[in-house]
Nucleic acid binder design. Structure first.
Length: 179
DNA sequence: CCACCGATTGCT
DNA sequence: GCAATCGGTGGT
């Protein structure tokens, strides 16, 4: 849970063949396990959510609505499910490469949503399970968001556990998926 | 094997 | 407000 808040302000990067892609994390959501009906891990381990039950600091990527790939950072120790969905980032590097994926909107909106992050970064299931401390995907320190810059609210797009205050966003950022 | 439905997005 | 699009999941 604390990871979701702590990731705000940090830098997600991806070293691709074409160049470096990077963005400042400004919106996240926490998902846990058996105590969280909205989590993919709620009903226990399955082929899809295996990574959520593994060690912290790995990428849990899932295919959504038949067309989007969404990225999470695992948050707990082996055996305990937990992940943080990255929902919004402010583009920092590789904006031209992100646009090459087909989104030609304003730069500040290229990564304003979990599906958009997957699209701009070219994420697929090949990225599922990647270690953020090793390999092309990583997270660097950045400048952590101050407590008074963080808004806590309900998660978006779920139908169960709708009142859990597990969404964290940097106040005022134009790269947050929605107000 | 089959039917349901979603941690979304973009257009009407 | 709603269609697009399809694999994961759970029940028959």
């Amino acid at each position: 849970m604390t990871l979701a808040r702590d990731l705000l302000g940090r830098i997600l990067f991806y070293r691709t063949a074409g160049g470096l892609l990077a963005g400042r994390i400004v919106e996240t959501e926490a998902y846990t396990g058996a105590a969280d009906p909205a989590s993919h891990a709620f009903r226990g381990p399955t082929a899809r959510n295996t990574v959520m039950f593994g060690p912290a600091g790995h990428a849990y990527v899932y295919f959504s609505y038949g067309m989007h790939y969404c990225l999470n950072v695992t948050a707990e120790r082996p055996g305990t499910a937990g992940a943080v969905l990255l929902r919004g980032l402010e583009p920092l590097a590789g904006i031209d490469l992100m646009r090459a994926q087909g989104d030609h909107g304003a730069a500040s909106r290229l990564l304003s949503g979990p599906g958009k992050i997957g699209r701009a970064f070219g994420l697929t299931l090949k990225d599922n399970g990647r270690d953020f401390t090793r390999g092309p995907l990583g997270i660097s320190a950045g400048t952590p968001a101050a407590a008074d810059q963080v808004a806590v609210s309900r998660r978006i797009g779920i139908s169960r556990a709708v009142d859990f205050p597990y969404r964290f966003a940097v106040i005022g950022s134009r790269s947050v998926s929605r107000a």
